[in-house]
Amino acid sequence: MAVFEKGIRLRHIGHLDIQRAMMRALRRSGLPVAYSNGYNPHILLTFASALSTGAAGKKEILDVTMAREVSPDDFLQQMNRALPPDLQLSFARALDDKHPAMMALVQAADYTLQIEDANAANKMIAAIPDFLQQTSILAMRRTKSGMKETDIRPLLVSLSGEGTAIHAVMALTETLACKPDMLLSALSTFCGQESAPDALIIRNGLLGRDENGELTPLENL
């Protein structure tokens, strides 16, 4: 398991491009990566959660299977030499084969939404207490069959603001998820704004639940 940053300058790079960059780095690094079996073997690499195009990520998480044991320090050094400056690893640790896939442990995501329009930010932040008093908050969600109205209130773990930044912890599982654009749209509508303001979206980290059921950074599980 490794933690990496997708820097702000790479925020418009899509998930598939990030995946390809990681695979190229693994090949260049000389690390003993494991490959799948079959006619078209590929590196055994998975991400805990794909990061949306347009967002930066401070603590994104990936799983890489090694063909033989490698120390976390060696893994970090060799990978960071092969990766660009805005796509660097900050932490790695070896996991037991019985450890669940990190993807299966994700329960929520921690975001900072930096609003570019200060006036809009002030209105939105001031409205947060009343916004959260609602028993239902409807937002449009894009699905394979088109746009669908979704109640995001149960998906908001916490929501606060300071200056021009909104801090949100939102549910993120295989079946339940609230994306930043859904929150911004719903909060903007609640404030009477015609459209959601432009915002720099930063995912600070992914969260899972510890043995006591408390949300904790995924890399600690």
Rank of each mutant, 00 (worst) to 15 (best):
I201A: 02
L159Q: 04
R27G: 15
L221K: 09
G38V: 13
I202Q: 08
L10W: 04
G205Y: 05
D63R: 12
M102Q: 12
R11M: 08
T135M: 09
T143P: 12
L113R: 04
A199H: 04
R153W: 10
A121T: 11
T143L: 11
T173D: 11
V64N: 00
E116G: 04
L155R: 02
F47E: 01
E219K: 09
A82S: 05
L187D: 03
P180T: 14
E219V: 03
A186W: 05
A34Q: 06
A34G: 04
E211D: 07
L215E: 01
L132D: 05
S160P: 07
L215A: 00
V3Y: 04
I202S: 03
L187G: 00
S71L: 04
M79A: 03
S36T: 15
R141L: 02
V64T: 01
K148I: 07
R142V: 12
V33E: 04
T46L: 08
N122K: 13
L10D: 02
S29C: 12
M147S: 12
A50R: 05
L207Y: 04
I152G: 02
A196D: 11
E116N: 09
L51F: 07
G163W: 07
H12M: 06
P100R: 03
K59S: 14
L155D: 02
N212G: 15
T150E: 10
R27D: 12
I128Y: 05
P72R: 11
E174V: 05
A186S: 11
L45C: 09
